[in-house]
Write a protein that binds this DNA or RNA. Structure first.
Lengths: 313, 313
DNA sequence: TGCAAAATGGAAATCCTCTTCGAAATTTCG
DNA sequence: CGAAATTTCGAAGAGGATTTCCATTTTGCA
C-alpha cells in the first residue's frame, strides 16, 4: 500500500501548484469558502463526516455526486471516472469539480480515499448482515426485526418456488397489450402504485385504477380487447378488485394476476397468474416479494416493448 | 464494467492466435502444458481454484505473479498495472503475459475478475436459497434475481446501522400527535400509502396527502401545532415534498422523516429523522427497507397509543 | 424584469496506462 | 559443454482516462 501511495504521489507531483484556483479563492473571500474550502479530507471517514455534517450546501449536480459517493463507495473505488459519472448520472467533469471543491487535485486523488477504504475494510467486513444483539432489547426493535425477517422470508420463497413459465407468459401478455390497466386495492394498492410509476418511467403508458372519485368502474368500462389488466390481490378477497376484474373479463381484456393463493377468485378470470406468498409478523404483512416480482414484470415488459420497437421500425 | 470487458475483448481479438507458443508446446508435451491451456476462468473463485490446484508449474517470474495475486487480491483489484507490478516485484509486461497465459485479453481483463469479486455487490455468492440455476439462462429471471438481491441488501443494511434513538424518538413524536399527516411523492408514495392503510387499520387516524386534485397544499395548510407529519423522501429531491414539509414546518407541526441520505432538504426541517438506504438493480429501486422501517414505526405508534388509552381512560 | 454570478455540459488536449515487440539473459536438453 | 528454446526485460506506440476550458444554462438578486 505504501508503494502504491508513493507511486501515486510521483504521478501527481506538485499537486499544490496545480490547483491555484483554490488558493486564490481562499485569499479572496474566506468567509464563504470556509464551507467549501475544507481542508482536504485525509481519510474516507473524514470525507464522510464532512458530507454528513450537512453544513455544506451543494448545487444540484454536486449534491447528486455527494449522494452517490455516499451510497456507492465501492463503485467509486473500482470504477473509472466515466463509469462512475454514468452511474451517478452526471458528467465526468462534474466529478472533477466536486473533487476540487474539497481540495483534491482531481478525481483520481479523491478516488484514492475510496480505494484505501475498500482495501482496508475488505477482508474483515465480509461477514456482516447480522442485526446487532441490541435488536432484541426493546420491543419496537424486536418488532422491526420481525418485520425484516418476514420480508426476507417472502423474498426467499420466490427463490424456492417460482413459476417461470407463467411469469414469462405474463410478460408476453402485458407487452402485447395496447394499454395496461393496473388494479389493486388495500394492501395491494401500494404495489400497483409503484408499478404504475415505474411503467410510466419506462415509457410504457398505463392506467392506475385508484378509485379516486369512485370512478374505478367507469375507468375499467373503457378497457378493450387489445388491452391488458394486471391485477394484484391478496386474501381476504373482499375488496372491489374481483368485481373490477370481472368487468374487464366481460369486455374480453387480457387479464394477468399476482395473488397469494390458488383460491383467489381472480384466477378463473385470468389468462395467466402467479402466486406470491407474503409472510407476516404480528399481522403486519410484507410487500417485498410482490414488489420484486412486479418490478421484474415491468422490466420484462419494457425490455420487450423496446425490442419490438427496434424490430418493427 | 461490461463496457470495459467488451473493449478488452476487442483489443485482444484472436487471443488464441496471439499465443502460438502455447499451442506448439501443447502438441509436443501435453502433460505439462495442459496446466497452462486452461480455459479462461470466469470468476475469481475459478481462478483461485486453478492457482490452488498446484498442478501448474510456472517459470520463476510467473510463479511470483501467481503468489502475489493469491496473497493480495485487493491490491490487484484497486491498483494500476504499474503499481501491481511494482508490489509484486515484476515488470508490467510480465503481468500481461501471465494474463494471456490464462486466456485473458490482457491485464485489464484479468483485473476485472478481481474487481467483480471485491465489489461483491453480487449476492449470488452470498449464501443459500439461490434461485434455480436456470435463473441465469433467461434475462428476465436474472433481473428478478437482481431485484430480490437488492431488496435483501436493503434489509441487511437496516441490521448494520440503525439509529435506535432516532427511531424511538420518532415513535414518541408520532404517538403524541393529535393527527398524523403522511407525505411522500413518486417512489415514496407507495410507502406512505401502505403506512396510511396500516395506521387506519390500527385505529390511528391519519391523513394521506396524496395530492389528488392538487389539493396537497390545502390539506397541509390545515396542519396544526398538535399534529405530526411523517415525510418519506428519496433522492432526487425534486418533488413537491420539500415544499409541503416547509409549509408544515412554518405551521409548527412536529416533523419526522424517513430519507435516504443526510443531504435531504427535509432534515433541517425535521424534529427527528432516520436514514434508510435502498439498494437498486439496474435503476429499479427496492422499497423493502423503507416499508419495514415504516411498519415498525406504525406498530410502535399503535402500541404506545393503546397503552396511553388504557392508562388515561 | 433584467443583470451578474454561479453552475453545468461537452469536447479538445494532455497525461498516463496498457500492450506490443525485439533483444538479452536464462534455462533446458542433447 | 554448446545450441535451441524459453523466459525476462525494457522501450516505444496505441488507446483510454483524466483534466481543462469555454459556451450555455441556470440561479440569485436588485
Amino acid at each position: 500500500m505504501a508503494d502504491r501511495k508513493e507511486a501515486g504521489a510521483k504521478a501527481g507531483e506538485g499537486p499544490a501548484s496545480s490547483q491555484p484556483t483554490l488558493d486564490e479563492t481562499d485569499g479572496e473571500a474566506p468567509g464563504r469558502k470556509s464551507a467549501l474550502g475544507y481542508t482536504r479530507p485525509r481519510t474516507y471517514e473524514e470525507l464522510r463526516a464532512v458530507l454528513a455534517s450537512g453544513t455544506v450546501h451543494f448545487p444540484k449536480r454536486l449534491r447528486q455526486v455527494a449522494i452517490f459517493l455516499w451510497q456507492h463507495p465501492d463503485d467509486v473505488a473500482l470504477g473509472t471516472i466515466v463509469q462512475v459519472a454514468e452511474q451517478a448520472g452526471v458528467q465526468p467533469s462534474t466529478l472533477v469539480r466536486f473533487a476540487k471543491t474539497f481540495g483534491f487535485a482531481g478525481f483520481s486523488d479523491l478516488q484514492g480515499l475510496f480505494k484505501d477504504h475498500v482495501k482496508g475494510s475488505w477482508p474483515e467486513a465480509r461477514g456482516r448482515a447480522e442485526p446487532s444483539p441490541k435488536a432484541e432489547t426493546r420491543a419496537e426493535l424486536h418488532f422491526l426485526g420481525g418485520i425484516v425477517a418476514a420480508a426476507r422470508a417472502s423474498l426467499d420463497r420466490i427463490g424456492e418456488s417460482f413459476d417461470v413459465a407463467s411469469f414469462e407468459a405474463m410478460i408476453d401478455v402485458l407487452a402485447g397489450a395496447d394499454l395496461i390497466y393496473l388494479v389493486g386495492s388495500k394492501r395491494a394498492f401500494p404495489v400497483t402504485a409503484y408499478l404504475s410509476l415505474t411503467l410510466s418511467q419506462q415509457g410504457v403508458r398505463n392506467v392506475l385504477v385508484d378509485n379516486v372519485g369512485s370512478t374505478a368502474f367507469d375507468q375499467i368500462g373503457c378497457i378493450g380487447r387489445g388491452d391488458a389488466l394486471l391485477a394484484v390481490s391478496f386474501s381476504p378477497y373482499n375488496s372491489i378488485t374481483p368485481d373490477l376484474v370481472a368487468v374487464a373479463h366481460e369486455r374480453e381484456a387480457q387479464i394477468v394476476t399476482i395473488t397469494d393463493s390458488t383460491f383467489s377468485p381472480l384466477i378463473p378470470l385470468s389468462r395467466r397468474w402467479i402466486e406470491v406468498i407474503e409472510s407476516d409478523f404480528a399481522g403486519f404483512r410484507s410487500l417485498a416479494a410482490s414488489l420484486s416480482v412486479g418490478m421484474a414484470l415491468v422490466h420484462g415488459v419494457a425490455a420487450r416493448r423496446s425490442a419490438g420497437r427496434r424490430q418493427g421500425g
